[in-house]
């Protein structure tokens, strides 16, 4: 396929977009830090109610998916299309399992009447309300990113299959990979903030 592509320009554009994402999540992390500083006791009490095992499992899944994403790019670069498709498909699958675990986690909270605006939270201590507000906002926003990542990765999978994305022309896949890794990095910080330090 002949076309004028500017790899460096396209990559820089992707990074510029990633910076806006860093500032978006960074701002929310600051909000978390300020409120943790104000309500340390209530944050700790609420944070210990989260399911560490599920959080740890999800961390492993996302790290593994970052590996499969990076590996799919390297294998496609070497021309191994089938292997690249397998790795790319695994990445999407791992993302979906992550979302399913998140769904289970949120459902358990909902079952205990813990969700934004629920009676339990409105009547409970203020720090707890703030904690769960941040929990649902941050993990929700992150899950939305995982979902969108899965959608774009699936699109890449189809384009690789059709031969529109190849080892010589893989800008789209590389940029999608960058996005997926950033989503992983966001989780690398969310995990200790919500599941470990409290």
């Amino acid at each position: 396929m002949h076309a004028n592509t500017d790899n460096e320009g396209s990559r820089l554009g992707m990074w510029l977009f990633l910076y806006t994402e860093i500032m978006l999540f960074g701002g929310l992390f600051v909000l978390y830090a300020v409120y943790y500083n104000r309500y340390p006791g209530e944050f700790s009490a609420a944070g210990r109610e989260l399911e560490l095992a599920k959080g740890a499992l999800n961390t492993g899944l996302l790290l593994l998916s970052s590996f499969t994403a990076a590996a799919s790019i390297e294998t496609l670069r070497k021309g191994a299309k089938r292997a690249a498709l397998g790795l790319l498909g695994s990445t999407v699958l791992l993302g979906l399992v992550f979302l399913f675990n998140k769904y289970l986690e949120w459902s358990h909270k909902f079952a205990h009447d813990i969700f934004p605006g629920s009676d339990t939270l409105l009547k409970g201590p203020k720090g707890e309300t703030v904690f769960y507000g941040l929990y649902f906002t941050l993990t929700g926003l992150h899950a939305l990113h995982v979902f969108l990542g899965c959608a774009v990765l699936s699109a890449c999978w189809v384009l690789v299959l059709k031969g529109r994305v190849t080892g010589e022309r893989m800008n789209l896949l590389e940029n999608t990979g960058l996005y997926w890794h950033l989503v992983d990095i966001v989780w690398i910080f969310l995990f200790p903030l919500f599941y470990l330090i409290l």
């Binding site: 990559r11 994403a69 990076a70 950033l182 992983d184 690398i188 910080f189 200790p192 470990l196 330090i197």
Partner: peptide, 23 residues
């Protein structure tokens, strides 16, 4: 906890995102 997260982030940036080769 945050230092470990920072090291992990560094690994992802350098080896998965190729930050050092990005120009």
């Amino acid at each position: 906890a945050l230092s470990i997260a920072a090291v992990k982030t560094g690994l992802v940036l350098i080896f998965f995102m190729h930050l050092r080769q990005a120009g």
